[in-house]
């Protein structure tokens, strides 16, 4: 990693709601092509961190993406660089799945312009990637919550952002799609498209899919972990501070791939 010029850096980030501080002076960096997970108990500041980075929430400190200060960008400029997937999308009117994905091209369009055929094609490819190709004409509101998340992910992937911020994208997904969504992000980041920061509730998913883990506790960065490199006892220790006593073991699957297995020990 280039320490002097990281791909993304959060520098002394503090944020909260009203006078209630939630994030307290957080600093960390991400390298390009990295899939980073944010772990922490409820209320530790995962969502606040993502909202602060993408400027939805007023904050102190700053964030840089390829040395560009995000706070100085207009919404349009910011949206060209960062994609944000909230826990639940706020779309509440009848729109087709394809129309929702096409919304992602707005930063590339003028006020009165309309998506091009090339954009429509790209949107269809993104839908195919998330397994929703057959639903493009369906009403977005009639999708399940998990399918809605996949649709919003397709919208974000289609928009060519450099930094993806995802807030618990796995929360409404079944077991298979949880891994699928993380695999998609890993492939996307691995191709050098950019980096993704994903708030997760499932530590097992985070340990097996993310390159880097940010463990938040009460608004602070308690630890920065690298699951493939850090020793299991250290990871156990850091996770125990959030989830109580846990045991980690390596287990080899039928395909020969080594994965971490997490067991909850009695408190």
């Amino acid at each position: 990693m280039n320490e002097a010029h990281p791909f993304f850096a959060a520098i002394h980030l503090s944020a909260g709601y009203g006078r209630q501080p939630v994030l307290r002076d957080i600093s960390f960096t991400l390298e390009q092509g990295c899939l980073a997970g944010v772990l922490g108990a409820n209320g530790c500041g995962k969502t606040t961190l993502l909202k602060a980075i993408c400027g939805i929430l007023p904050h102190a400190g700053r964030c840089t993406l390829q040395e560009t200060c995000l706070e100085q960008l207009t919404p349009r400029q910011l949206a060209r660089r960062c994609g944000y997937i909230p826990q639940r999308s706020g779309i509440s009117i009848d729109l087709s799945v394809l129309e929702v994905v096409l919304m992602g091209f707005n930063p590339q369009l003028g006020l009165l312009e309309h998506p091009t055929p090339a954009m429509r094609e790209k949107a269809r490819r993104a839908l195919a990637l998330t397994g929703l190709a057959h639903r493009e004409k369906d009403n977005y509101l009639q999708l399940s919550e998990g399918q809605k998340q996949l649709c919003i992910l397709a919208r974000t992937l289609a928009a060519d952002s450099q930094l993806l911020l995802l807030d618990e994208p796995e929360s409404a997904l079944d077991f298979r799609h949880r891994y699928r969504i993380l695999d998609l992000l890993r492939t996307w980041a691995g191709k050098g498209n950019g980096s993704a920061l994903v708030a997760l509730h499932d530590p097992l998913l985070a340990l097996n899919c993310c390159d880097q883990l940010l463990v938040l506790s009460d608004g602070w960065v308690q630890a920065c972990l690298t699951p493939g490199k850090d020793a299991l006892p250290r990871i156990e220790r850091e996770l125990a501070a959030i989830y109580g006593p846990v045991s980690l073991q390596y287990c080899t699957g039928r395909n020969g791939q080594r994965q971490i297995v997490l067991l909850k020990e009695p408190d």
Partner: peptide, 12 residues
């Protein structure tokens, strides 16, 4: 019609 934060992150 999207929520304010979501619309902002769509460049609005």
């Amino acid at each position: 019609s999207a929520e304010e934060g979501e619309a902002r992150m769509l460049g609005v």
